[in-house]
C-alpha cells in the first residue's frame, strides 16, 4: 500500500508550492523520511476540501532544499524541526533557529539524532544535541 504522491525535483519545489497555494490548497505539513545511508525524501502535504495532495521531494542526506516558508509562513516551524532532527538545511527560512529549535545548547554543526545512519558532525563538535535519543549508526 502506498500513498498518492507526485515526485518533483527540488528545483521545481517553489513553483509547485506556489501553484498549489494559488489553487486554494492549505499547507498541512512536511514529513521527512530516511531511505538509506545517503538518501532521504521529504513529503509536502497540502489539503483542499479534505483531499490531500502530496509532493515527494528526493534529497541527499545533509543536503539543502529551498524553503517554502517565505511563501507559506506556516512551514517555518516544521522546516526548523527537520533541520534539528535530520540535518537538512533549508535555504531562505524566514525564521531560522540554526538547528536550535528544540535545544538552545545544541551545536550548530549538522547533527541528525533522528537518523538511523548519522550525518557526520564536525570533528570538533559533539553530535549529541538531544540527550537520550541518540541512535547508534548501523
Amino acid at each position: 500500500m502506498s500513498i498518492d504522491a507526485t515526485t518533483i525535483a527540488p528545483a521545481n519545489l517553489l513553483a509547485e508550492a506556489s501553484k498549489l497555494k494559488n489553487d486554494g490548497y492549505r499547507f498541512v505539513t512536511l514529513t521527512s523520511v530516511e531511505l538509506d545511508e545517503t538518501n532521504m525524501e521529504i513529503l509536502y502535504h497540502f489539503d483542499k476540501n479534505l483531499t490531500l495532495k502530496n509532493l515527494r521531494v528526493p534529497v541527499q542526506k545533509g543536503g539543502t532544499l529551498p524553503s517554502i516558508s517565505g511563501l507559506l509562513f506556516g512551514a517555518f516551524l516544521v522546516e526548523n524541526e527537520i533541520r534539528d532532527q535530520y540535518a537538512l538545511t533549508f535555504d531562505g527560512l524566514v525564521l531560522d533557529y540554526q538547528g536550535k529549535l528544540y535545544s538552545e545548547t545544541a551545536q550548530t554543526a549538522a547533527s541528525s539524532p533522528f537518523c538511523k545512519y548519522h550525518v557526520k558532525a564536525e570533528p570538533d563538535s559533539k553530535t549529541g544535541s538531544e540527550p537520550g535519543i541518540q541512535q547508534e549508526g548501523k
Binding site: 498541512v28 505539513t29 514529513t31 521527512s32 523520511v33 530516511e34 502535504h45 509562513f73 506556516g74 512551514a75 517555518f76 516551524l77 516544521v78 525564521l95
Partner: peptide, 19 residues
C-alpha cells in the same frame, strides 16, 4: 515501523499565533 510521523494540531497553530 520504519517511520512514524505525527503532525499535531498545535504544531500547525504556532505559526498563526506568531503571526
Amino acid at each position: 515501523l520504519e517511520r512514524v510521523r505525527i503532525r499535531t494540531p498545535t504544531f500547525a497553530n504556532i505559526p498563526p499565533l506568531a503571526a
